[in-house]
Write a protein that binds this DNA or RNA. Structure first.
Lengths: 144, 144
DNA sequence: TAAAGATTCATGATATATCATTAAGGTTGC
DNA sequence: GCAACCTTAATGATATATCATGAATCTTTA
């Protein structure tokens, strides 16, 4: 039935996109995953977020974000300094290496999007976004 | 920009759906993940598939499918018999326990879909599916 | 029919998803 | 000022995603 095909299509679209996107990043010679890239970009944009804040923005789990941040620190993309006003946290900043990586990924991401959305009009995109938001809202409304 | 919001919405919709769906399955007291359920259903529908065939149908990787099948076997949802005509493969069949599980999950899945798609018309669903398929096609066309 | 090649499945490595829990550090209320 | 409570981050456990590779088993072909 249609509704089952729908979720299949949804899953398929996002997976194909992720595969293509990651393949293109790899091929550009940049060593970062899409998910790490997303986190790095959020930190670049807004300083001074907690892991939970970041998780909310990238729509992931705090535990996932904690591990991604650890990886980004290990790879020298991020730097952490202690925060005097709160001993639990650190202040995260994108390092020079991190900025270089973001700059290198930027055009690849733009190209990925352009490729993925070929043949879709502005109007299509708006429709799509509206319907997807509706689904997300429906799903979060009913925690039962 | 719009295209970035789009992929965010796509990601969000599928994640919210999966969270809700899994939560409702858990709450129904059935011990299976959505992904395992999907594989089990494919095997129920069509006997005598290779792991790669199954992977293609559920849009996953052969390696992922191999591990899910192992789990389903361990949990008694599936049974495997050797195939005389091909020593590499086994014939997978849904066990009685597997059938019980599928039956228990069925109404939950139908309800999940109904909840997720509240307020969307038949026409909306068609539009959505068409656009998502377009994106998937765009992404798979360009492996570069 | 033997060697080369293809298919099938399993598994290692690394990353992510999710839930649960822990430990440490803040905040509040009395 | 201390006890109860909340937040923050880290981590364990389990499942999945992906790529790569290995091993066993067909299949082809010369």
């Amino acid at each position: 039935m249609l509704s089952s095909i729908l979720f299949y299509s949804l899953d398929k679209a996002i997976r194909q996109y992720r595969r293509m996107a990651q393949a293109n990043i790899d091929q550009a010679g940049v060593a970062i995953t899409i998910d790490q890239w997303l986190v790095l970009r959020v930190i670049e944009e807004t300083d001074d977020l907690t892991q939970s804040d970041i998780a909310e923005r990238v729509f992931k789990d705090q535990a996932s974000v904690a591990r991604m941040i650890r990886l980004l620190l290990d790879r020298g993309m991020l730097q952490a300094e202690p925060l005097p006003q709160d001993g639990r946290r650190t202040r995260l900043r994108v390092s020079a290496e991190g900025h270089r990586t973001l700059a290198a990924v930027e055009p690849v991401v733009l190209n990925n999007r352009a490729v993925a959305l070929q043949g879709l009009s502005e109007n299509d995109l708006n429709t799509l976004r509206f319907l997807l938001e509706q689904i997300a809202t429906n799903c979060s409304k009913q925690p039962e």
